[in-house]
Computed example of a mutant assay.
Amino acid sequence: MGDDVIEKALGLLCDRYIFPAKAAEAATLIRAKRDAGAYDGLDETALGERLTEVLQGICADKHLRVRPRGEDVREALTEEQIVAAYEQQLRRNNHGIARVERLEGNVGYLDVRQIPDASVGGRAIAAAMELVSHTAALIVDLRKNRGGAPNGVIFWTSYFFPDDQTHLNDIYDGESGRTRQFWSLAHLPGERYLDRPVYLLTSDVTFSAGEELCYNLQAQGRATLVGATTRGGAHPTEYFPLSPTMEITVPVARSVNPVTGTNWEGTGVVPDVEVPAEDAFAYAYRKALDHVLATGTSTALLDEARAAVAGLPSA
């Protein structure tokens, strides 16, 4: 069983990894270790950890992993079954949207822990944005966001731009050799969120598509990032079952930001304001309330904002 899993993993690695030379180097080392008995007698968790250690040691790619499959996808072996399991998981997790709230002082707050594929989660994203559409400033909490779908990132970030004229990202696909451009969308359900400050909260957990949302908006000067440097995974990835209980995640493409000419792979996204992740919300909320106090005209709203500032920890 272990040898079958290893060979299938290495075959997928060499066929699909975005950097073929690195894949070949890693495969050679893993086969040598296997032949020397390094993986004999390991359970699935330990085998996955040992293989991942070699893969990441050579490729330095945090998306590249061999691991046990989650209980909810163990019967999903075909592409159709995997997609169905993914969509079910998204629905169960409310499409990654853990919380939507209007905070005191008319500041919007979104706790987003996964970026759904727009074809599945677009209605949920639109609903969340509708609920904060009339706030004076917005905080998007990505401190627990572990990734998602590139087209979901484009759908969500399009709400912060006026039209379809903003070039947000490019993705180079290794198998086809083609580069796809991603631009802001011409049409969105509901209102766009324009001309108001947006704060993104980050941590060292923030990963993959969550990082892309941060990187795209930061590169365009459309949001202020507050918190800690993110984890550093920029390569779009596919999941391949090796058995009903094991899988490999293989980066099959790479992002190229049209503003910076590069991405956040290995470095993470560095916030504009570096504070401990646990302090990021208080900092961003204070800044949002300062904006409300500087621009608000309603006496009731200004009183509400002042009371909210008074309740925050000392700066």
Rank of each mutant, 00 (worst) to 15 (best):
V270M: 10
D279Q: 15
A284S: 11
A300M: 13
V270I: 15
A300S: 15
T260W: 09
P258L: 09
E265L: 09
V273A: 08
A277W: 05
V252C: 05
V259T: 11
G266H: 07
G266P: 07
E265F: 02
N257D: 14
E265Y: 01
S298A: 14
R306S: 10
A307L: 14
Y285T: 01
A282V: 09
A288S: 10
T267M: 09
A253I: 02
L301M: 14
G268P: 01
V292Q: 04
G268T: 02
F281M: 08
T297E: 15
T267C: 06
V269P: 00
A280C: 06
D279K: 12
P276Q: 06
F281E: 04
L293P: 11
T299F: 15
R286Q: 13
L293M: 15
D290T: 08
P258G: 04
G268L: 03
S298V: 11
G296C: 12
N263K: 06
A277L: 04
L302A: 09
T299Q: 15
V292D: 03
A282S: 14
V250D: 02
P258M: 07
V259D: 03
E274P: 01
N263Q: 08
D272K: 04
V250T: 07
V275P: 05
G296Y: 00
V269G: 01
L289C: 08
V270E: 11
V259P: 01
A294F: 08
T297H: 15
S298L: 14
P258T: 05
V270C: 10
E274N: 11
R254L: 10
P271G: 06
T295N: 14
L302D: 04
A294M: 11
